[in-house]
């Protein structure tokens, strides 16, 4: 039994280990180890395409996480006080958002937005004053963040709602009995209690957006995110540089996840 568990853990971690080990490979060929070197890390970090893609990914992930965490938290709090058709509608939409495959979300968003932009852009051009260049709506950073926010916001709503449901109601009643205003109760009781869930939602949204390939592949327009860059490089062949990038990306996501875990656990422990 124990031996079995160990072999499953080996199965889970050997591939990750292989990438990490080969990222320190001095040789040019990715699959033969020729001695230790950190030169591929240097190569990766000084490659302008990699750095541009990294910047795009970081900006998109940060904006997505901010939007998803704030909109999702607002919705989760409001949903507590809502019943009837509105609540059913929201539950259904959140369910659909999580259920529909990312690839369908990606293509659906692409053709819908391209079609809408195809109508709106000529209208904007017609309405705009003569002489000035009318703004053009295009697929790019905006649509990427909008699509990622849609999915991650649904995740944040689920996480924060679970936290609110696990909250001790008597604390809210106590606060009201002690004549706190609703806003005071929210700021001094509710918010501190759900803060770990919000932060965990923020970090998850960030990680999702940063790692996502399939939605970005369709809606990012001319922007290249890091996963898109890695995917197109893999198509051209396996290189030690990609191993170095992969190792760095995995290390960074691991750090974020460990932080998210600690926050959620601490939050759960605090309010039992």
């Amino acid at each position: 039994m124990r031996l079995y568990a160990i072999s499953v853990y080996l199965f889970l971690y050997i591939p990750i280990g292989v990438i990490a080990v080969f990222s320190f490979n001095a040789g040019r060929h990715a699959s033969q180890f020729m001695g230790f070197s950190t030169k591929w890390y240097g190569k990766a970090l000084s490659n302008p395409f990699v750095m541009d893609a990294l910047e795009t990914s970081l900006i998109a992930a940060f904006l997505t996480a901010c939007l998803a965490a704030s909109l999702g938290t607002m919705a989760a709090i409001a949903l507590q006080g809502v019943s009837g058709w509105l609540r059913t509608l929201f539950d259904a939409l959140i369910y659909i958002a999580v259920m529909i495959p990312g690839i369908v979300i990606g293509i659906a968003t692409l053709i819908a937005l391209v079609t809408v932009f195809g109508w709106v852009n000529p209208m904007l051009a017609a309405l705009w004053p003569e002489g000035a260049a009318a703004p053009q709506l295009n697929m790019g950073m905006g649509t990427l963040v909008a699509a990622h926010t849609m999915f991650t916001m649904a995740l944040v709503i689920i996480i924060v709602r679970a936290r609110i449901a696990g909250m001790d109601r008597s604390l809210l009643e106590a606060s009201q009995d002690l004549f706190a205003t609703p806003w005071g109760t929210f700021r001094q009781v509710t918010l501190p209690l759900i803060a770990p869930a919000i932060l965990a939602g923020f970090l998850l949204s960030f990680t999702f957006s940063f790692d996502d390939f399939i939605i970005a592949f369709f809606v990012a327009g001319s922007e290249t995110t890091l996963p898109i860059y890695i995917f197109s490089s893999i198509r051209r062949g396996v290189t030690p540089e990609i191993n170095a990038i992969g190792t760095m990306v995995m290390a960074a996501s691991l750090m974020l996840l460990v932080i998210a875990q600690i926050l959620l656990r601490r939050g759960a422990a605090k309010s039992g």
Partner: peptide, 11 residues
Amino acid sequence: WTSILIRSYAW
């Protein structure tokens, strides 16, 4: 929770 792209690539 780490990139499935990179984990598949490892194979």
